[in-house]
Amino acid sequence: MSDFGYVLLKNRHIDYEANDKRIAEYIYAREPSFGYCMECGCCAGTCTSGNFTHLSLREINILIKRGETSTIKEQIDKCMLCGKCTLVCPRGVNTRNIIILAGEAIQKLEANEL
């Protein structure tokens, strides 16, 4: 390979068609309230875990929906399942179940079961 002193750039679009949305489909099928989120961030604002770690349920929610799932696994492991996010959510999203289902879906994805 030749080195001309510059590199090809990676397109940073969210390639919606190419992205893998199986995790999102898995959650939608089992927890319809996944779709009720309006990205207000109330969950992440009150999250005890979010104080010290990069955990935002709001962000997880939107990333899964867009199929941008490379950082999801790391984030959901930080959740303590304390339920404070469920308490504040104005849309009645079952936040705990979404975390649990996302974990399940990732496991299944890794085991080629999705």
């Binding site: 005890t48 010290f52 770690t53 303590m80 304390c82 404070k84």
Partner: peptide, 19 residues
């Protein structure tokens, strides 16, 4: 109103106790 940080899973693993 905030959690003391016990968190069960977080505390049970030594390396996570800083959390």
């Amino acid at each position: 109103r905030h959690c003391c940080g016990f968190g069960f899973r977080q505390y049970l693993v030594q390396a996570n106790r800083g959390y």
